[in-house]
Structures are given as structure tokens and as C-alpha cells.
Amino acid sequence: MHSFTKNFLKGIIRSNPTFILLLGLCPTLAVSTSLDNAVGMAAAFTSVLLASNIIISLIRNYVPIRVRIPVFIVIIATLVTIVDLILQGFIPALSKSLGMYIPLIVVNCIILGRAEAFASKDNTTNSIADALGMGVGFAWAIVLISLIRQLLGTGALDLFGHHLFTVPGLGDNPVTIFLLPMGAFFAIGVLLALFRWMGVSTGE
């Protein structure tokens, strides 16, 4: 159980995929315009990562090195399509606002990276821990960025159609630039600097 906890915890801070490893930034920056999108993307991403880590760790001894990458890609692409179809059918509004960034999870460097570096070398229990840890790490990063962008960019906080609160003074004059693409670059740049200032070594 010790190694389970260790593998779970490492993704959350020490090897955080977004802030430390700087991987899979495309969805993190692209869909973090609202909290809804961030939560939806985090859920979709974690389900795919978890399923792919489980399947790949189960078949790891039967896959020769030569076809490893194609096999992994087919498995991940299949899982992503399944998630995509389910979202389209059952949560169409979310599926529409995430758009092509759902199928693009296929080329998310974190998922193929975890398959290569972890699940193809370790047992299923550890792979589950690894996937959950990375998933939580990805989730809090994208939620934090979306919180900043939504709060400053719209001056209010909404979650799944419920209005939570309005920032005093910002509600009528939001800093719209945070909703624009460059706002995402700014948010993550300042966050990285902040973490480094606090003494966390962010990856190069």
C-alpha cells in the first residue's frame, strides 16, 4: 500500500503534469475560460488516463517494443472516442463548448507519456495510483487557471448554470483580456513565477 500512496501523491505536486512537467498544456490553456469547461475537461482527461493506464499495464508483457507506440495510440484513441461519444450523447452542452479539444486528448503528451514511462513498466495497482495522481494534478491546475480567468475575466463565478457570486467592483467592468487566449498565457506565466518564488522548482 505504501507504493500506492507514493505513486498517487507524486502527480499532485512534485511531478505535477501542468506546473512542473509543463506537459499537456494545450487543453489546459484552451478550455480554461470557464470553470464548467475546466471541470469537464479534467473529468474526461482523468477517465481516459485511468483506463489507458489500466489496459496498458495489463497487456504490458505481451507487447513487443517495435509496435508499442502504435498499439498505445490505438488504445488511447479508442478510449478518447468512447468518452467523446458519451459526452455528445449525454452532456451535449459540455461537449459543444469543449469542441475538438476532447478528441485532441489523443495527442495529449501526458497520456502517451504515462503509458510509455509508467504503465508499460509497472503493475496495475501502481498504474492506477499513477493515473489518479496525475489526474488530480491536472485537475487542480486547470481548475485554478480557470478560476483566475473566470473571476477576473467575467467578474463573477458561475458553475453549471448556478451563479455563485460577483466580485465587488469587477462585475460591471471585468478584465476581459483574461478570457482572451493571451490571458491564459499571462495566468500560467504568473502562476509559474509565483510557485518558483515560493521555492518549488518548476521544470525546464
Binding site: P181, M182, F186, G189, A193, R196, W197, T202, E204
Partner: peptide
């Protein structure tokens, strides 16, 4: 740049300014 911004963080800020230009 300020020490905390050196490397990647300042690259993101640069990307932001570049994005503003492209706007």
C-alpha cells in the same frame, strides 16, 4: 528579468505579448 520569472515564466509572458500583437 526578476529571478522567479527567468526561463519558462517569462516565455509565457512573451507569448502573451505576441498574442496581443496578433490580435
Amino acid at each position: 528579468p526578476p529571478l522567479a520569472f527567468k526561463g519558462t515564466p517569462i516565455a509565457f509572458i512573451t507569448a502573451m505579448l505576441l498574442g496581443l500583437c496578433f490580435l
